[in-house]
Amino acid sequence: MSDTLPNPLDERYPGYDVLDKRLTPSWNDATRRVIDARLAVPREARFLNALEWRTLSALCDRVMPQPTYRPPVPLAAYVDQKLLSDTRPGFRDAALPPQRETWKNGLAVFEAEAMARHDQSFHALTPSEQEALMIEAGAGRLGHAGWSAEQMQLFFNGHVLTDILGAYYAHPTAWSEIGFGGPASPRGYVRMQNDRRDPWEAIEATPETVEKTRKENRNVR
């Protein structure tokens, strides 16, 4: 392997878990409060109806497929929670209605197109059939009665991707996966240079060192 090729491991930071630092000086009370609440999200639809929830769950599986060797991040639950609390980003493309309506309309278009083309619900399609519809939406080629292809494109790129990825990379599981240090107050960091690691930072494995690294990362906190 050339050393400039990306590391081929799926588990780059085996054994590393940001949550192991929960009681260390890297986490303050405010952080514990918000992360505890995040981990306790109810894993059910509270804003969307049953069919919308299934469509959303299918979209989540395609936007961020998750490995089976660890519990998945409940992505649909976070999107639903965001809609329930109506947390908004501070801007809205003038071509779209408010966020809740946009989500409901967009999900309905995926469902309606799936029925029209395959005579099956979106969530029942094969992953590649679902992806094909998603790619069309993202490219601005998927409209449906009363909802233009342009709106669908704005919905897919500005809401589907943003909200699902926003849910994933706000989760400690994703932080551990990419070797991010996670919360860091008040302790912060000391070793600033390239290739320097503070003892509370993750160690990256190479294909030869997976098991050794897994052991070492268990002590990272």
Partner: peptide, 22 residues
Amino acid sequence: EDFASDETSQSQLYWTDERLID
């Protein structure tokens, strides 16, 4: 007391009232 090390919850600092963009 109020600031978590967290991107999502710290959106409490932003102006998130609706604005239209075009």
